[in-house]
Design a binder for these strands. Structure first.
Length: 401
RNA sequence: GGAGGGGUACCGAAGUGGCCAAACGGGGCGGACUGUAAAUCCGUUGGCGAUGCCUACGGGGGUUCAAAUCCCUCCCCCUCCA
């Protein structure tokens, strides 16, 4: 085994779901080393989601590994494909987005992605550049290069076809468009989540049809979300965002089921998992805290990680008020003659409840505290001597002044 | 072109004249428990200072003392045959 084979074995091939074909990656790396020409490593990104989650960070980290070896990361923004909808999800086509919206999303996206990627070795391109320029004849030519039977190999299509559920022709075009992106940017490697394997493979065939050397398809496992069940995604809400505050990030990570600790270390950090197995097993609490600290440190700083940890303990372990509570100014017209205020109005003013009904409900359920005193009845007035600390549930605080 | 099925709350789904602010599940929220914002269990889940009123079962119109439920009409979605 030579150095390059070892590299693929020990680094690039680690934490990977599929790598096909492995030998081609070795060959490409070898040639790149000889010629000094960096490989072009593609990752398609969806411009509809401005916020990246830890799930996105998995392929991004893989791209960074390539960049650290001198290769070029190419982020392909799917601003054009966005308009035809992604068949991998539900069958519904998503709404169109304006260019301005896409631009705005991409700005925050890049901001977050560059916390992981090396900006110097990253190209950001928009697939409308080439897809938008194609004529109908070009499209027909593209469709001629793939067959219906091969499309139906895709599990999702096969199932729906067998069940007599609809598959629009448009959905067949999606993998082709994505494949053509690979042609347009001359991709050597395409990265993606495990659910993208089919699309990446179509890319190989289409590149070959256009006289290019096929890309290597490298997929990473889909990160399981905070609920420990479904893949992490923004639509299910079981995610941690790369751009989230230290406090949120820390808290969310501590809420993952213990069974996820090991895999999170594995795909999200550079920590050697082997050395942690004992701790994970013997003291999941400490391992999880270490995980949260490691990740907050990575995306923020060590100091902020410590602060987030201290804050978490303060609220959840010691049940004390958080260090800084958002303040709101009370509209004085709600005050009664004696300077007191009806609790319901106080809660409403805090913005912690949406309606009087909800306010009454949380009071009945014993979830409301004013100045750390539990409120037992919704039929009381409290004297208003600002600041007044209002708490709903365990972790929602507002100070009224 | 023909035949049929369907649009119900945040989502899925039941309900086919009054007992329906609408079963049940998911989600959300609160509580208990906990190392945890996990798991589990319990409760709760349209609005209104409220034994009543308002809004709500795709849109509009109608029948009725009473409509998510019946009639008319419009819009939208899906399936099968061609």
């Amino acid at each position: 085994m030579d150095a390059i084979e070892r590299l693929v074995e020990e680094k690039l091939g680690r934490g990977v779901q599929d790598l096909v074909p492995r030998e081609e990656l070795v060959a490409k790396l070898r040639r790149s080393k000889e010629t000094g020409k960096p490989l072009r490593v593609k990752l398609g990104i969806d411009p509809s989601a401005p916020h990246l989650t830890f799930g996105h960070s998995v392929p991004l980290r893989k791209m960074r590994q390539f960049q650290d070896l001198g290769h070029t990361g190419v982020l392909v923004v799917g601003d054009f494909t966005r308009r035809i909808g992604d068949p991998s999800g539900r069958a519904s086509t998503r709404a169109l987005m304006s260019e301005a919206e896409i631009e705005r999303n991409m700005a925050t996206y890049k901001d977050q992605a560059f916390k992981i990627l090396d900006p110097v070795r990253t190209e950001v391109v928009y697939n409308s550049t080439w897809l938008g320029a194609m004529t109908f004849a070009d499209v027909i030519q593209l469709t001629a290069k793939y067959t219906v039977a091969r499309m139906l190999e895709r599990d999702d299509f096969a199932k729906r076809y067998a069940e007599n559920r609809s598959i629009s022709v448009l959905e067949f075009l999606y993998p082709l468009a994505q494949a053509y992106d690979s042609v347009a940017i001359r991709a050597d490697v395409e990265l993606g989540g495990a659910d993208q394997l089919f699309n990446l493979l179509v890319g190989r065939d289409i590149q070959r049809e256009y006289g290019q050397e096929p890309q290597v398809a490298l997929t990473v496992p889909l990160l399981v979300g905070l609920d420990g069940e479904r893949a992490m995604s923004q639509s299910t809400g079981n995610y941690v965002g790369i751009g989230e505050s230290p406090k949120e990030m820390y808290g969310k990570l501590l809420s993952i089921p213990d069974t996820l600790i090991e895999s999170y270390f594995d795909v999200l950090t550079d920590v050697d998992v082997e050395s942690l197995k004992k701790e994970i097993h013997d003291s999941p609490r400490d391992a999880k805290r270490r995980l949260a600290r490691t990740l907050v440190t990575k995306f923020h700083s060590a100091a902020e990680a410590s602060a987030a940890e201290a804050e978490f303990d303060r609220i959840h372990v010691l049940h004390e008020r958080p260090a800084d509570v958002p303040q709101k100014t009370l509209d004085r017209s709600k005050l009664k003659g004696d300077g007191a205020i009806w609790v319901i109005d106080l809660l409403l003013a805090s913005g912690l409840v949406k309606s009087r009904g909800e306010a009454k409900r949380v009071i009945e359920q014993g979830g409301v505290r004013v100045n750390e005193e539990r409120i037992e009845s919704s039929d009381v007035d409290v004297p208003f001597h600002p600041p007044v600390l209002v708490q709903v549930g365990k972790r929602a605080f507002v100070e009224l002044v």
